[in-house]
Protein backbone atom coordinates (compact mmCIF):
# COMPACT_ATOMS: atom_id res chain seq x y z
CA UNK A 1 0.00 0.00 0.00
CA UNK A 2 2.75 2.43 0.93
CA UNK A 3 5.09 0.94 -1.61
CA UNK A 4 6.50 3.44 -4.02
CA UNK A 5 9.12 3.23 -6.72
CA UNK A 6 11.78 5.54 -8.12
CA UNK A 7 11.06 6.47 -11.73
CA UNK A 8 12.78 8.61 -14.32
CA UNK A 9 10.79 11.59 -15.62
CA UNK A 10 11.02 11.55 -19.41
CA UNK A 11 8.50 14.17 -20.50
CA UNK A 12 6.34 16.88 -18.97
CA UNK A 13 2.70 16.84 -20.08
CA UNK A 14 -0.19 19.27 -19.75
CA UNK A 15 -2.16 19.59 -16.54
CA UNK A 16 0.72 18.86 -14.14
CA UNK A 17 1.17 15.39 -15.59
CA UNK A 18 4.37 13.69 -16.70
CA UNK A 19 5.50 10.57 -18.49
CA UNK A 20 7.90 8.41 -16.51
CA UNK A 21 10.01 5.36 -17.12
CA UNK A 22 9.71 2.84 -14.33
CA UNK A 23 12.39 0.24 -15.00
CA UNK A 24 11.38 0.08 -18.67
CA UNK A 25 7.63 0.42 -18.14
CA UNK A 26 6.12 3.72 -19.25
CA UNK A 27 3.50 5.40 -17.14
CA UNK A 28 1.70 8.70 -16.94
CA UNK A 29 1.70 10.19 -13.46
CA UNK A 30 0.72 13.41 -11.71
CA UNK A 31 3.22 16.04 -10.58
CA UNK A 32 0.57 17.90 -8.54
CA UNK A 33 2.42 17.23 -5.28
CA UNK A 34 5.92 18.33 -6.31
CA UNK A 35 7.44 21.46 -7.78
CA UNK A 36 10.22 22.18 -10.25
CA UNK A 37 10.60 18.67 -11.58
CA UNK A 38 12.38 18.43 -14.93
CA UNK A 39 12.87 15.61 -17.42
CA UNK A 40 15.93 13.64 -16.29
CA UNK A 41 14.96 13.87 -12.59
CA UNK A 42 14.08 10.78 -10.61
CA UNK A 43 10.90 10.96 -8.57
CA UNK A 44 9.29 8.51 -6.14
CA UNK A 45 5.94 7.35 -7.47
CA UNK A 46 3.05 6.30 -5.27
CA UNK A 47 -0.51 5.59 -6.43
CA UNK A 48 -0.01 7.58 -9.62
CA UNK A 49 1.63 10.64 -8.04
CA UNK A 50 5.22 11.79 -7.65
CA UNK A 51 5.67 12.14 -3.87
CA UNK A 52 9.10 13.68 -3.91
CA UNK A 53 12.16 14.15 -6.03
CA UNK A 54 15.00 11.71 -5.45
CA UNK A 55 18.19 13.46 -4.43
CA UNK A 56 20.93 11.90 -6.59
CA UNK A 57 23.77 13.40 -4.49
CA UNK A 58 22.37 11.95 -1.25
CA UNK A 59 21.85 8.56 -2.92
CA UNK A 60 25.49 8.61 -4.08
CA UNK A 61 26.64 9.40 -0.54
CA UNK A 62 24.75 6.45 0.94
CA UNK A 63 26.06 4.13 -1.79
CA UNK A 64 29.63 5.34 -1.26
CA UNK A 65 29.32 4.46 2.41
CA UNK A 66 28.13 0.97 1.46
CA UNK A 67 30.94 0.32 -1.00
CA UNK A 68 33.51 1.50 1.52
CA UNK A 69 32.13 -0.99 3.99
CA UNK A 70 32.06 -3.82 1.45
CA UNK A 71 35.65 -3.03 0.38
CA UNK A 72 36.87 -3.04 3.99
CA UNK A 73 35.36 -6.48 4.57
CA UNK A 74 37.76 -9.43 4.68
Amino acid sequence: MCLAMPALVTELLDGDMARVDLGGARQTISLALVSDVEPGDYVIIHVGYALTRLDAAEAAKTLALFSELAAAAP
Binding site: M5, P6, L8, L22, G23, Y42, L54, A59, L63, F66, S67, L69, A70, A72, A73
Partner: peptide, 20 residues
Protein backbone atom coordinates in the same frame (compact mmCIF):
# COMPACT_ATOMS: atom_id res chain seq x y z
CA UNK B 1 16.25 -0.64 -11.90
CA UNK B 2 18.27 2.41 -10.91
CA UNK B 3 18.04 3.39 -7.23
CA UNK B 4 16.58 -0.02 -6.48
CA UNK B 5 19.09 -2.71 -7.50
CA UNK B 6 22.05 -0.95 -5.85
CA UNK B 7 20.18 -1.09 -2.55
CA UNK B 8 19.69 -4.86 -2.83
CA UNK B 9 23.35 -5.90 -3.27
CA UNK B 10 24.00 -9.19 -1.49
CA UNK B 11 27.70 -8.59 -0.79
CA UNK B 12 27.00 -5.25 0.84
CA UNK B 13 24.23 -6.89 2.86
CA UNK B 14 26.74 -9.42 4.19
CA UNK B 15 29.22 -6.65 5.01
CA UNK B 16 26.50 -4.68 6.81
CA UNK B 17 25.47 -7.79 8.73
CA UNK B 18 29.08 -8.34 9.83
CA UNK B 19 29.38 -4.70 10.90
CA UNK B 20 26.18 -5.00 12.93
Amino acid sequence: MKYVDEFRDGDVAQALARAI
